[in-house]
Design a protein around this nucleic acid. Structure first.
Lengths: 210, 210, 210, 210
DNA sequence: AATGAATGAGAGTTCATTCAT
DNA sequence: AATGAATGAACTCTCATTCAT
């Protein structure tokens, strides 16, 4: 990417440094939470001087924004990997669930950092502008799945897709929240969510009600 | 909080002071978040010296625990006011919903502080011992309602009461979370939750399911 | 000494209280040193309120003076118990040594507190006025013993009694100082002191001692 | 410490700063004692910000250790200056005495700080590890002199070198201690010490003891 | 004689940030 | 691009002392 005369050490391109910094910051957030995040610790972890860190990232606020952006990028990449071609709504819901389950168990750090930042976003609009779309996007994905499913009859006709989406994301986040305290079965929750939304399996006289 | 004829009064009983301190701390948490909580600000707001504050509450940690306890007491009091005598499961669910709606709109501070402390509890066991039971209790209440409802046929027979409870609390908290960003209709969410869990209202040919 | 209606608790005569306070203070100095002495700890140990302590002893400075006085009284009492009637200079020296040895092993607290106060006395004249005479008195006692011993020929004729006294007290204190770090034989030191000061054992009839 | 052409200069090398800090701390200990040592005062005296002081020396404890080390270094340097080549035991003893006399009169600060730290060392092992060897070394030097002197017959044959060394250091320290209160003649003490340890000047029948 | 509550004046320590090189 | 040194502004906490009862 760039001609680096000393490829092994010290001088690195700005972009690379910022990547390392974001990674280090995320690691520390995982370990000690946002409240335990110290610029000095990040610099130490990256192996640079605190002044160098400030050279690349002007302030702590900017640093947190950088972390938020790095998270968003990660989620976008992940989202792109999921193709929705030729899948039924129910299948897509299951894929979303599987994805979440996998993330929770394999890269829980992602969720830890996400949670921390979403909390922070409430009070810090500049973080909000990055995080809120992320969360909203997640909910919208579910809403869209539900809409499709209602149309093809796999979900209840009286399902409110937006409300159902919020319920789903809420259930998943809450699962996460309580999982950190006392591990519970995510499968139970997901199964219940499916039962809650799918069309009555005994679709007798179809006039559900107003 | 009480009509004080001598506004300049200094000496107060320890219990009263602790109450005032907890209230002041809560107000500041609402304004600036837990991370913005400073002992000096609390002392100022109560109108006492910082050393006096430390006389009543030995450390910042103890202070946060005090806030947690005060929250717990508030919720206990509130919970006791709700009688469940002669109410059907569905009615009780509605009452819980109404209660939540009311709290969100009338004393959102309570929830703001609650949220902040639950987040903190993850990393601070001494807060956890106070907060986790609170949250768990809430979930258990829902679980019990669902169990009753399943028994009397008002809720789906295949409902998993524990999973449903987690979904419900998750939905409500998530509603709260996103409400702070973009107010949405809580009624929509609650209505959807009811539809998700109640027994199929079209019990035509009684053989509901396999 | 005083008519006390409630002999079991609380109200005690001022003198008694001051005695208890001095004792508690000494105990704490032994445990944590003068620098670790807190008025609150003393009050706790005596079982009274911090304000009550200040009622009896107006300030911390006065409190330390009180401790110094209590020490002095103890030493005076001890000194009076030693009769010098009909004893030879050498015997009296031995008695002084035995006394010191006993104090070091049986009530080292006395010496700990003494050392701490003597150090403090250097910077605090009001403590100095109490402690210096104490230390000086000790040295003078040795000087007098030496003077007697020179006169009756048991000590070297060219002995400088004042210098010898200073050497003796210095050796004993230093023994104490280094004993706290690495216990050594006090008998060795004392034996050497005797050899250093007694008249040349060789010239006379050589049967010096057993 | 070095002629600085720009008195307003700010940036200095870390080592230099640490040297300045140690010196300032020693000066304050001399003035107000260890208990009167305040980090802020040190910073002021060095002419740096309190945070800068913490940048160079992480804590007050470390600062005191730094002072202890600086003392040790001073004594080591001083000790190296004394050559013991071709000197008799008596001469070497005299040199030690001269050295002490000189230090007491020319740089009493050294001894003040030394005394303060030795006292502290008793309760603070991390200071002890630095100070105790210093004091022990001093005593050992005397012991060695005495051993040599006994061998060449200049000191009493029945002299216990270790006990004599302890007596000597004790006498010197005690001289110092009482000197601060009421100046006395150090020469008297030293002369007496010599008389106490040298071989009987009336070396009649040379077989001193059995 | 005794106490709970209150306080002023600091103490040591922390941290994001900046400056000079 | 990088760094050692420096800093202001805070922060939590401590302690001897005093006041009102």
């Amino acid at each position: 990417m760039h001609s680096d005369s000393q490829p092994t050490i010290k001088r690195e391109s700005g972009d690379c440094r910022r990547l390392n910094i974001a990674a280090a910051a995320r690691a520390i957030i995982v370990e000690k939470g946002l409240e335990g995040l110290r610029t000095r610790d990040i610099a130490d972890r990256v192996g640079i001087n605190i002044a160098t860190l400030h050279y690349h990232v002007p302030s702590k606020e900017a640093l947190i924004a950088l972390v938020a952006e790095s998270l968003r990028d990660d989620f976008r990449t992940q989202s792109l990997r999921r193709s929705r071609e030729g899948k039924s709504a129910l299948q897509r819901l299951q894929i979303e669930f599987d994805e979440f389950r996998e993330t929770v168990h394999e890269t829980p750090e992602l969720i830890i950092v996400l949670t921390a930042l979403i909390e922070k976003a409430r009070r810090h609009p500049e973080i909000g502008t990055i995080m809120t779309p992320l969360y909203t996007h997640w909910r919208h994905q579910f809403a869209e799945i539900f809409r499709t499913g209602i149309a093809d009859g796999s979900f209840r006709a009286n399902l409110d897709p937006d409300a159902a989406a919020l319920i789903t994301t809420g259930a998943l986040s809450d699962y996460w929240r309580q999982w950190t305290v006392s591990p519970a079965s995510i499968d139970q929750v997901m199964a219940e969510l499916v039962r809650a939304f799918i069309a009555s399996q005994i679709p007798v006289s179809s006039k559900d009600r107003s």
